[in-house]
Design a protein around this nucleic acid. Sequence first.
DNA 1: ATGGTGTTGTTAACAATTTAACGACTAATC
DNA 2: GATTAGTCGTTAAATTGTTAACAACACCAT
Lengths: 210, 210
Amino acid sequence: MVKPKRLSRSCVLRLELYLEIIEQFQKEGRQYVTSSDIGSALGIAPGNVRQDLFGLGSAGRPKVGYEVTRLIALIRDLFDLDREKPACIIGFGNLGRALAGSNMWSRGGYKLAAIFDNDPSIVGTDFAGLRVRSIAEIFGVIKTQGIEMAVITVPASAAQEVADIVQNAGVKAIWNFVPVRLNMPETVAVENQSLAWGLITLSHRTRPAQ
Amino acid sequence: MVKPKRLSRSCVLRLELYLEIIEQFQKEGRQYVTSSDIGSALGIAPGNVRQDLFGLGSAGRPKVGYEVTRLIALIRDLFDLDREKPACIIGFGNLGRALAGSNMWSRGGYKLAAIFDNDPSIVGTDFAGLRVRSIAEIFGVIKTQGIEMAVITVPASAAQEVADIVQNAGVKAIWNFVPVRLNMPETVAVENQSLAWGLITLSHRTRPAQ
DNA sequence: ATGGTGTTGTTAACAATTTAACGACTAATC
DNA sequence: GATTAGTCGTTAAATTGTTAACAACACCAT
Ligand SMILES: NC(=O)c1ccc[n+]([C@@H]2O[C@H](COP(=O)([O-])OP(=O)(O)OC[C@H]3O[C@@H](n4cnc5c(N)ncnc54)[C@H](O)[C@@H]3O)[C@@H](O)[C@H]2O)c1
Ligand SMILES: NC(=O)c1ccc[n+]([C@@H]2O[C@H](COP(=O)([O-])OP(=O)(O)OC[C@H]3O[C@@H](n4cnc5c(N)ncnc54)[C@H](O)[C@@H]3O)[C@@H](O)[C@H]2O)c1
């Protein structure tokens, strides 16, 4: 009997890495992986790996390691990756196009179900079998298609307005790429993908010692 | 006398948020901000803010708050944001273009000094006063322009090869957007911007309780 | 001046996470 | 079979990060 113990953010982050590397092992045809396999591939202590995996309900055999398929299933279930929730992209500019074409959707969890823009020269064009729709349709489409997540890649001036609309339409999660702090109720999970972080972090990490 | 105490990752993350919000206060014409101002704008306890700021060397006055200009200067110095290090983007596809056009460069730390691609129909085109150069020139350009950071946005198949080149050319930092774990020596700071994380995290956060 | 009030700098308690350790179990070997 | 070696599950310790608390101090009103 496993309690729904809350995982720390860093643990979730590691689990995501584990999944990635384990899937790679699977591609190489391996049936079992050990905590050392995972750890050394990732620069994480094997004990740390075991403890993280411990929380998932055990799937390992002493002397042999963890069964790859079972481990993948456990992590995918933890992240709810096997339920393909409908998602949409709002703002089909450079960033929106890059995200739409990214292979990140292939891991599951969400499937791209709609794209919106307000530029008449973009609306109506096709992308991977999806017609870019007018922003005017957004409320209705979210409702009828049951869209649960919205990727926001519009200019900063429109971000809050767009967020308000999708929230009212019933979206559960927002992935916000716009450098604006969205004002949203607690009930909506907002993930801010501030790329400036990466830039600043690198600048900090390579700062010459003083 | 302040020691070069190592900051935790989450502290760095918060400090970046502080900088953002303090600059906003500055735009509004304020000269002083209190830890409560910062905290309530960000949903962080004021004491936490003070403790983070404490490590920077004090800049605050009781009853008044922190001097905005001094605080900004301290954080910018911590992150080495005032030295505009030359950076380049490699792979000028959708993502490369979105990043090149992003306003994240305006905060400083790096300035976009070169763009590379290997597609003849892209090489030679202009972007914001920068000519997209052939990948063949990359080694020489990095050397002569003293480029310190490379943003990698090429297809997965080319990522490691590109990383090896820039590393040999003397780049100190790599911002890797490709879902591939780069094999790099310790001397190079690699920041993996795996967008899949955001996706998975949202899927996890909105997972229905079981 | 003087007392009141709000905010910092700093320390201490507390909580969470990471690291270490080790018994238990499994498979292989002799 | 017994023994050995390798790896897991689990507990405990150490480290780190967060929260709370409060004295010292600066400004303000009187
Ligand atoms: N997270 C980052 O650091 C990062 C990086 C790059 C871009 N961005 C942000 O992403 C956003 C988009 O960047 P981009 O380079 O793709 O810009 P872009 O101009 O190429 O794309 C914006 C798109 O949004 C559409 N749009 C504008 N208003 C709209 C509205 N009200 N409803 C629907 N669509 C609307 C436009 O027609 C355009 O197609 C910007 O806010 C930018 O700051 C962030
Ligand atoms: N981090 C994420 O989740 C995320 C999101 C979107 C895209 N991506 C990744 O970013 C990369 C680019 O995505 P995109 O949508 O911009 O693809 P894209 O095809 O639009 O752009 C790739 C560009 O790289 C150029 N290129 C190819 N080989 C090269 C080489 N050897 N040297 C220099 N340039 C080369 C191509 O000419 C093209 O212009 C992909 O690897 C993709 O997986 C990641």
